[in-house]
Simulated assay, not measured.
Amino acid sequence: MRRLPFLARVFFHVRFFALTLAVLLSLAIARPAIAGEPVVSAPRDAPLVLQPNVVKIPPVPVSYSDKDLGWLHLRYVPNAHERLEPILREAEEMKAQLRDWFGTPVLDQVEVRIARTPDEMAALAPDGLPPPAYATGVAYAPLHLVLLSLSAPEASVEAPDLREVFFHELVHVALYDAVAGRHVPRWFNEGLAIHVSGESRFVRLRTLWEATLSRQTIPLADLDAAFPQDRYEVSIAYAESADFVRFLLRDADRVRFASLIERVRNGTAFDRALADAYGTDLRKLEYQWREEIAKRYTFLPVLTSGSLLWVLVFAALVVGYMRKRKRNKAILERWELEEAALDAAKAAAAAAAVAAEAPASEKQIAPHPPGLPRIEYEGRWHTLH
């Protein structure tokens, strides 16, 4: 076999090496996450901004109103003013609360833009970073920029709760500040935003209750890897995330929570920081949390708990039932009396009507006194006296 020329052999080896390297790189990019390996992900309404220094942010329309509160710079459509006033009164309190929880100052400078519609909101977004089509709010945390819409996408029938969306997005920015941009799991990011904003509280409680009773809760490790796509599972994921953050923020654990944030800010991976701050790993904390919700979201407390809350609830149900029963009995007695009186009146009216309509031949004729003579005159009988 004839040997290839030197240059041809070199070209062949270089080409083979390049193809091999390309295959290895593609496998490395496409490979699934190893169990236990942290996955870098972010909420869809808080997208990753890899190069914030080169991002271009479009100007707001000249028709927008402008309000500068020092740390909070608002630019909004004029008709949003009345809806904003009560929210701004809470904003300072929320900022102070987050500073206490995190143990570090946050939200030194934030710009919030409020548009009329999602399309108008998208026009205010940084170039190349549009908000999700379904979103009514988005937080570009590295840019300290929040966008909100006063109306929901056409597919939605309800207008967004401006207060809830406002605080939800601000929390994303605050958490970014607190951990200095370090990665935290998506369930932690979303859970904290939902817990602080209080959005859909009763819906979340019902969802978590149903998931607990039906044993459909999702392991936090799965949520860390990827959020579900199914609509019902997404609602469970959000409800779980918010409640687990509530669990981490219990009064007795506030110092541990601040320690967790500090450790992440200093560069410790989240799972390790959580274990160091709480003295146990995520798996054991999740087990403790599941034991708690199993007690909270089952029927057993209604039957066996001696807590004041359940006693009051049961007493209220009994009192309400007795009052309702007594009220219904009084109503039935009144109806019976009214019906009896009405029946009597109808009977009397019917008798009177029958008597009035009877023919003359059927009417009673007074009897003729015996012993007196009678004569007929012009077709009528007369008694002689």
Rank of each mutant, 00 (worst) to 15 (best):
G36D: 13
L208H: 06
L24R: 15
L84W: 00
L19H: 14
A135C: 00
A330S: 09
R256I: 01
V55L: 05
S307G: 10
I375C: 03
E85C: 03
I261C: 07
A355R: 08
S63D: 12
F244L: 11
F314V: 13
A347S: 04
P130S: 08
D177L: 09
P58W: 12
A330R: 15
G267C: 00
P61Q: 11
I34F: 13
R3T: 13
R231C: 07
E90W: 02
M94S: 07
R9K: 12
Y76Q: 08
L317I: 14
L147C: 01
L337R: 15
A366K: 10
R2C: 09
E362G: 03
Y238A: 02
V318I: 12
Y278Q: 05
K326Q: 15
E169T: 01
Q288N: 14
Y287T: 15
R323H: 10
H368N: 05
H172W: 00
V49M: 05
R263M: 11
Q229R: 10
F6S: 09
L213K: 12
A358Q: 12
E92L: 12
V313Y: 07
L124N: 14
L372S: 05
T136K: 04
A366N: 10
A115E: 12
V106I: 11
L308D: 14
A349H: 09
G198C: 05
G128E: 02
E85T: 08
L372G: 03
L308G: 12
L72Q: 02
A275Q: 06
A8G: 03
V62Q: 11
S259R: 15
R2M: 13
D276R: 08
D66S: 15
I331W: 13
A345Q: 15
R116Q: 13
A225I: 05
A123G: 11
I87E: 04
R231S: 15
Y377F: 13
S361H: 12
T383S: 08
I194V: 14
E233F: 15
G36Q: 05
E111S: 08
F11K: 13
I375Y: 09
V171I: 08
E111Q: 08
L72E: 03
K324C: 11
L205R: 05
P32S: 09
D251I: 01
Y176M: 03
E291P: 06
D177Y: 07
L147M: 07
L308K: 14
T207L: 11
R283I: 09
R3K: 15
P126E: 01
R231V: 12
R283H: 08
L25H: 14
L19P: 04
L107E: 03
R113P: 02
A316E: 15
E90V: 04
